[in-house]
Structure formats: C-alpha cells, structure tokens
Design a protein around this nucleic acid. Sequence first.
DNA 1: GTTTGGATTGAAAACGATTACATTGGCTAT
DNA 2: ATAGCCAATGTAATCGTTTTCAATCCAAAC
Lengths: 327, 327
Amino acid sequence: MSASIKDVAREAGVSVATVSRVLGNGPVSDALRLRVNKAIEVTGYRPNLSARRLRSQHSQTIGLIVSDIRNTFFTSVSRAVEDAAYQAGLRVILCNTDENPDREAMYLRLMQEERVTGVIFAPTRETALRRDLDTLGFPVVLIDRAGPQSTVDAVVLDNAEAAAQLVDHLVQQGYRRIGGLFGNTSTTGRERHEGFVAAMQRHGLKGEARFIAPTAQAATEATEAWLADPDKPDALVASNGQLLLGALRAVRESGLALPDDLALCGFDNESWTEVAFPALTVIEQPVLEIGRSAMALLMDRLADASRTPRKVVYPGLLRERGSTAKK
Amino acid sequence: MSASIKDVAREAGVSVATVSRVLGNGPVSDALRLRVNKAIEVTGYRPNLSARRLRSQHSQTIGLIVSDIRNTFFTSVSRAVEDAAYQAGLRVILCNTDENPDREAMYLRLMQEERVTGVIFAPTRETALRRDLDTLGFPVVLIDRAGPQSTVDAVVLDNAEAAAQLVDHLVQQGYRRIGGLFGNTSTTGRERHEGFVAAMQRHGLKGEARFIAPTAQAATEATEAWLADPDKPDALVASNGQLLLGALRAVRESGLALPDDLALCGFDNESWTEVAFPALTVIEQPVLEIGRSAMALLMDRLADASRTPRKVVYPGLLRERGSTAKK
DNA sequence: GTTTGGATTGAAAACGATTACATTGGCTAT
DNA sequence: ATAGCCAATGTAATCGTTTTCAATCCAAAC
C-alpha cells in the first residue's frame, strides 16, 4: 500500500493540513516546508487523485471523444487539444467510438461519472442531431461534425464549400462525369454531399453520389463495383482520408491509370497522399487550428456558461496535385 | 451539483447501503430494487467514480503509454488493448509521449497518482533501460521496445531477424550497396540495426547505417543528403513507417524512380504502403496479437505478481512488393 | 502590561461511495 | 413456545484528500 498524506504528516511531525498546504502552496513556514518535503521524499508519497478530486470537487480533466483513432485527422486534432489542455493544467481522457452510437453513449456516461470539466466530441450523425447535448452536466464542444442548429459550441470545416472547390477544380481540369463517395455516419458526409450536388448543378452537370460506411474497405468495394459499371465516372471525389485510400486501392487493383483512366481527389491532406504516384489532390483541413479552437471555445464556455453557442467555421485549402491533372 | 447516492436513498426511502447494493448486485429484495432503480431514474443519478475508487481502493484502470499517437502501429495496438481491457472491465487511459523522456516520467507519475492497476508502455531507449520499472507500484508491460534484460514483462518483434529478412531479400533481388535509416530514440532502432549489420556481414557486404530522429521530416532530410552522395546506395531500409514515408518523400522530390534508381523497403505495413506506386516492400507486424498479448501478460502478472518476467517475441512477416523488384 | 493583529498551525468536518457489523423479522426445528 | 438461523436492511466507519474554523504564537502598538 502506498504512503498517504497521513504517513507524510507523521514522518514530518506535523498535521495533515500542513502537508496539504505544502502540496498546494498554502502558507507554511520555510522550516516546516523543508521538513515536509523531506518526509515526502522519504515516504515516496504520491497524492491520490481520486481523493483529491472527490474532496475538491473538480476533476481538472476533459474528455476527447473521437470517432476513429486511426484517422490522422483526429490524431492531429488530439495532439493540439492535448497541448492546449496541458497548458491550462487539464488532463485529457481520449476515447474512440468507432462511429458507434452505443459506444458514444457509453463514453458520454463515463464522462459524467468521471465528473469531467468538459468534453470535445466528434459525434456520429445520429448523436450530432441530439438536442440534449447541453444537458449532460458539462459543456460540450463538437468538432468536425455538428448539426445545422446545434445547441452547443462547435468548430467545423466549411464542408459544402470545400466539396464545391473539388468539383470546380475537376470541371476546370476537363472532367465531366464526376462521382462522389460519402461517409454515411456523419453530418460531414451529408454536408460535403450537398456541396458536391450544388456545385455540379451550377455547372449543369449531374453527378452520382454513393453513401457508404466510412472505412477504406467499404470504399474499395464500392469503387470496384463502380468501375465495373459501363458508364463509369471519369473522376471521383472521396469525402475523407479513409475513403480516399480505399478508392485508390480499388484503382490500383483494377489496373487503371491515374489520372488518365480516372481522376481521384478527396479530403484530408494525409502525408501519404503526397507521396502516392501520382500525388493526390486533396482538401487540407487546418487540423491544429481546429484543435486549438475547440479548446478555446471550451475554456470560454467554462468561463461563461450562459453564452449563446458559437460555431467556428474554417475554410478548406485545395492542394492541387497530379491525380487530377488536365484531361 | 449532480445527485449523490444519498439523494437516491432519500428519494427511494432506503439507506445508502441499499442503494449501493443495488448498484453492485448485492442482496436486495425485488421490491426495494425496483424502488431504488426508479429513484435512480428520477434523480438522474450517476455514480461518482472518484468516490468509488477512493473507497474501493481499486481504479479498474490501466494506462497505455505510447511514443507516437500518429503512428498507426500504436493506434492499432491501442485498439486491441482497449478491446481486451473492455472485456476485462478495465478502462484505458491513453497517453502520448512524443518520444520525450520527460513526458514519459510525467505520465508514469500520473499513473501512480491515478493508482492504476497496470501500465502497457512503449518507452524510449533511455527509459527502457531503467532497471526500476518494477518498483513503480503497478505492473508494467513493455511493448515494441524493451531492454535486453528487462525486469518486467514485454512483447516485442524479433527485430534483428526481421531486419535480416529485409537485407536477405534485397541481396537476393540483386542489390548490394544497401543503406539503413534507424530511429535513434528506441531500442527497436538499435536492434534492427544490429540485425541489419549482422545480415550484411553474412553476405560479405558492408552497408552504411544512419541513426536519425524517428520522424518523417528527419528521414526526408537524411535521405536527400544521402542521395546527393556520389556513391549513394542502390537500396534503402527504413526502420519504421515514419522513416519509410520520409524516405519515399525524398525519393519523389529527387525525381528518382523506384526501384530502378533506388530500392526502398522498411517496417510497418501501413495501408498506404500498399497503394504507393510501386507498392512498398515491408515487414508486417502482428499488431493485434501484440496488443492482445500485452494485455494477457498484464492480466497474468496481476494474478501472480512474483512470476519471473516473460518476454513474448513475434516474428515479422515479409511483404514483398514492387519497390524491391529484381534489379 | 495588556491589547491587537497577522501569520502559522492543528483539529475536525466534509466529499460520495463501499463495507464490516449490528439489527430486524420471519421461518424452521426442537 | 423458544431457540436458532438466514436473508434483507440499516448504521456507521472508512478511503485520502481539502478546507473551514479555532487555537497558538509573537511582535507591534497603546
């Protein structure tokens, strides 16, 4: 059993209150402070965070709930969040839901039981549309995905506009029969789809869109099927990094050449998209900004709980590369 | 302030002990159980985990400390660990050290303060060589990296053998001037280097090895410099996914062709290595096995603290692809 | 010399749960 | 009818902290 504050107090010959004050920078004479610190050393004392949190009634912890830990978008965001949280003296609990609403509910419950200070959350569509995210007992900041009229703060990409950028670019490069692959679990997929459709209409084109599970495997299968189609598209848009990867795999397996047989582009500037051959045209998201911004929104909300919810929207940045070269 | 067990007890007209028993499946009559559950519903009660952990003296939590959350090796392992932990009723705290020994020390201290049940840990070389990992107050299982005579359980790849597989393969394909890029912060980098050197000697060749920071950026710079060398290698081995990515970027930028100008291979079967063109030859690690195995070692250790430390060693699997085609 | 007051220190009450122990009531065996 | 026992329930101690409040000390002010 590890040493408690009592053991330290006994060792130093002082009261537990004094030890606690030494730990928390309370008023203690230099002489006692010295004795207590020595006693801490001798006993190998480590504060018990459970006890501390119970008594002090704040956990100094925030939750970060993401939908796919293997997606570099989320690992990058989490890096930024963690750094910012650390600066503010907060610890981060990182949770991965695998796009599963049940797991989301479980983790939200866990956050309540941990009495977290706040949560940054990338929900599935199903959960993003819940209107009760402001009644969980802690503030929530949504990232990447948010309903149209969210009751909580959010930081997202301008998805429709970014999708339109891709379409405009493809059209400008001479492509006309453009298809889109969109994830079916997120608001993000929906919004990118809307931007896709709107942009196509603007150009007087009608493109086909397919909604699939947001995994590379699903994208590979969908793309394979699509490419077998007699009037297959001459360009494809994938609505996130995993789908882009899956689509590329299908293209490779089918033996088609990029971009001559098919142009390919999508979302998320993952580092491999740059070394693929040809390199892939993508929309880059300001991942670090998004993480920092989410943390800032959370801190603001903690300072003023009644503020009306804000939504921070970032533009996507088009990275033109070889996979969408002129036709 | 959220409801406590007292509020529930009052609402249900029973003692707190009864409520606690309902929560913990103690012996309670059906009538009371019903009333208590209704009271829980009414009050919106959520157990306070800090209080529970403090009183019950076990955290039901394990720590998972990895060196780079953006590395898919670790995200995959963490997936396996989390699943296994969840099965065992344990929660996982995921921590990212960025290969920084200070952050490692900080997180180990945090684990002590959280009174975790155990820790699964991918340490830097500096920390892996510490002989006191068995005195932290909780069992530690090392993954991916371990000192030669670790005092704690570990599960690792047979790094030397795997590196030798790559060398043998390259030699068999006709390459002779083989260079190696190795991470300088991990025991893994060292061991792979040893296997590399031994295999080269076995073939009567002497290859040059360079130790660098384990980031794609460092690999890009090192490779660029190396390729500018008059007697540059005709094949390169990269000791992990990040280095492989960085090396590939340098090759792309220099305009050289794979594998004619340079063969390239390395560790970690990340999904993009398969869609690169040409696809990259890699050593695949059994990531899920490694995670599961680490969890199993931890459970065994918890059951019997005095067991002598075990080291589980997995073989790497060579995936031959186009980037090392016959010369 | 007494009072005032500020600075340290200690004693004890929380925080919200679990759990050892005591109590109660109903049943069976004698 | 009484003892004995088991199951269900309640009372109160406890986990390791922080924090309130009271006590103590010593110097300065009167």
